[in-house]
Deep mutational scan, measured.
Amino acid sequence: NNDALSPAIRRLLAEHNLDASAIKGTGVGGRLTREDVEKWLAKA
């Protein structure tokens, strides 16, 4: 759900042209964290 994304995470996803639904969030309530996105980028 994009409503649950912080502005910083939205920007990070946009910079790398990523789809938030492709990344499993580990934050509160399954929210994406910066670490989630960075780990996903490291694997890609």
Score class of each variant (00 low, 15 high):
39 K>R: 14
12 L>R: 04
13 L>F: 06
8 A>H: 11
34 R>G: 05
10 R>N: 05
40 W>P: 01
20 A>V: 12
12 L>W: 10
13 L>K: 00
38 E>P: 00
16 H>K: 03
23 I>L: 13
17 N>D: 08
13 L>E: 00
29 G>P: 02
28 V>N: 07
27 G>P: 01
2 N>I: 14
13 L>P: 00
37 V>D: 00
24 K>M: 12
37 V>E: 00
29 G>Q: 07
38 E>M: 15
11 R>S: 06
23 I>C: 04
43 K>D: 10
16 H>Q: 02
12 L>Y: 08
26 T>I: 04
26 T>H: 04
35 E>K: 10
7 P>V: 11
38 E>A: 09
33 T>G: 01
1 N>S: 14
27 G>E: 02
42 A>P: 04
44 A>I: 15
14 A>R: 14
6 S>E: 12
16 H>S: 02
25 G>D: 01
42 A>Q: 12
10 R>Y: 06
7 P>R: 11
44 A>R: 09
34 R>L: 15
25 G>W: 03
42 A>W: 13
42 A>S: 11
36 D>M: 02
30 G>D: 04
19 D>R: 07
29 G>A: 09
12 L>A: 05
18 L>G: 05
9 I>Y: 05
36 D>K: 00
26 T>A: 04
39 K>P: 03
12 L>Q: 04
31 R>D: 04
16 H>A: 04
23 I>K: 01
2 N>P: 12
41 L>R: 01
15 E>N: 10
5 L>G: 03
29 G>L: 07
24 K>L: 12
40 W>F: 15
17 N>T: 04
29 G>W: 05
35 E>N: 07
20 A>D: 05
33 T>Y: 00
2 N>Q: 14
32 L>P: 04
23 I>G: 01
35 E>M: 09
20 A>P: 14
41 L>P: 00
5 L>P: 04
18 L>V: 13
39 K>F: 13
6 S>K: 05
5 L>V: 10
12 L>N: 01
7 P>A: 13
16 H>E: 01
33 T>L: 06
28 V>E: 14
18 L>Y: 05
42 A>K: 12
18 L>T: 06
9 I>N: 01
29 G>M: 09
24 K>S: 09
28 V>D: 10
4 A>M: 13
12 L>G: 00
10 R>L: 12
30 G>E: 03
21 S>L: 09
22 A>W: 15
22 A>F: 12
37 V>H: 00
10 R>I: 13
39 K>Y: 14
14 A>I: 08
4 A>G: 14
30 G>V: 02
42 A>E: 11
16 H>M: 06
35 E>G: 08
17 N>P: 02
2 N>F: 06
31 R>G: 06
4 A>R: 14
28 V>Q: 12
2 N>W: 03
39 K>S: 12
8 A>L: 12
35 E>A: 12
11 R>Q: 13
14 A>N: 07
10 R>T: 06
26 T>D: 02
3 D>K: 10
29 G>Y: 05
6 S>P: 13
26 T>M: 05
29 G>I: 03
37 V>W: 04
9 I>R: 02
18 L>P: 02
38 E>R: 11
35 E>H: 08
24 K>P: 14
44 A>L: 15
36 D>V: 01
22 A>L: 15
31 R>H: 07
34 R>A: 10
24 K>G: 06
12 L>I: 08
34 R>Y: 15
5 L>H: 06
44 A>P: 06
5 L>W: 05
28 V>G: 06
3 D>V: 09
21 S>P: 04
16 H>C: 06
7 P>D: 14
44 A>T: 11
41 L>W: 08
20 A>T: 06
19 D>S: 09
5 L>F: 06
17 N>L: 07
39 K>T: 10
7 P>Q: 12
13 L>N: 00
4 A>Y: 15
19 D>L: 10
42 A>R: 12
39 K>V: 08
36 D>H: 00
33 T>Q: 03
36 D>G: 00
21 S>W: 09
5 L>D: 05
29 G>E: 06
9 I>F: 06
9 I>H: 04
30 G>L: 01
22 A>V: 13
26 T>G: 03
16 H>V: 02
42 A>L: 13
30 G>M: 03
32 L>E: 00
22 A>K: 14
23 I>Q: 02
17 N>H: 11
24 K>R: 12
17 N>V: 04
12 L>E: 03
14 A>H: 08
16 H>I: 03
32 L>F: 05
17 N>I: 05
6 S>T: 14
5 L>I: 14
40 W>A: 15
14 A>L: 11
17 N>Q: 08
18 L>Q: 05
36 D>P: 00
34 R>W: 15
37 V>G: 00
20 A>Y: 08
29 G>D: 11
8 A>F: 12
26 T>W: 03
44 A>M: 15
10 R>E: 06
25 G>S: 04
23 I>V: 06
12 L>P: 00
18 L>D: 01
9 I>W: 07
13 L>G: 00
12 L>S: 02
19 D>K: 08
33 T>P: 00
41 L>G: 00
30 G>P: 01
31 R>Y: 07
26 T>Q: 04
43 K>N: 12
30 G>Q: 05
2 N>T: 13
5 L>Q: 06
32 L>I: 14
14 A>E: 11
29 G>F: 07
13 L>M: 06
14 A>G: 06
3 D>F: 03
9 I>T: 05
4 A>H: 15
15 E>P: 01
28 V>F: 12
31 R>L: 11
41 L>Q: 01
1 N>A: 13
21 S>H: 08
19 D>G: 05
44 A>N: 14
22 A>Y: 10
5 L>A: 05
2 N>K: 11
5 L>S: 04
17 N>G: 15
13 L>I: 06
23 I>A: 02
34 R>E: 11
30 G>T: 03
15 E>V: 14
27 G>H: 02
11 R>Y: 08
20 A>L: 10
43 K>R: 13
44 A>S: 11
37 V>S: 00
28 V>A: 12
15 E>G: 08
28 V>I: 13
3 D>I: 09
26 T>Y: 02
29 G>R: 06
2 N>C: 06
25 G>N: 02
